[in-house]
Amino acid sequence: MSRLTDKNLVIAKEIIARYPRQKSALIPLLHLAQEQSGYISREAMVHLGELVGVTSAEVYGTATFYEMFRFEPIGKYLVNICGTMSCALMGAHELMHHAEKRLGVKAGGTTQDGMFTLAHAECQAACTEAPCLQVNYRYRLRVSTADLDNLIDDLEAGKLSEEIPAHGVLAKVRQHIAPDRGVGAVSPELVDQAPAWLNGKAAL
């Protein structure tokens, strides 16, 4: 059902091939599964386990360690309001209270229409621009309560759909290595010599 689609399977295989060990691809593949469905389903985890050669329990163990992965559907827009020190000093709590009121849900909740999930987040690395928030991991900086209202309005009106894709989509650009350009991943067991350029001579 929510195993990877054929199209995503091609991407998945390309990602797996970049690593000397298949399991390394697990987190990028979990993101791919989340991009496909907005969350990570049980079937997706089974599928990923098959793809990288580990048990579903191992996939589950890894996946649940990381906060970005969701195992149940959430809102189309995940609004993460930072509450760590720099943001807290600059009014993050007040912003969160306002967001809770505006959206009618408590932090952690999803609006009835499935549009928004509001969440408390930890430091988002925009501390000088506090308080900050991310919508599906796209920044909004120095956010006032009025800014927040406008943001919600714009999201509801679909004005930001270009900039902010639905939950699950991270980078819109993927790395792609053309076969003739890539060196290729080699299992470490198969390498026992220093790289060619360490021969005491200039490479150029």
Partner: peptide, 10 residues
């Protein structure tokens, strides 16, 4: 060789 149990969450 049966990793069917794992730590989960954090």
């Amino acid at each position: 060789g049966d990793p069917l149990i794992s730590f989960t969450s954090r």
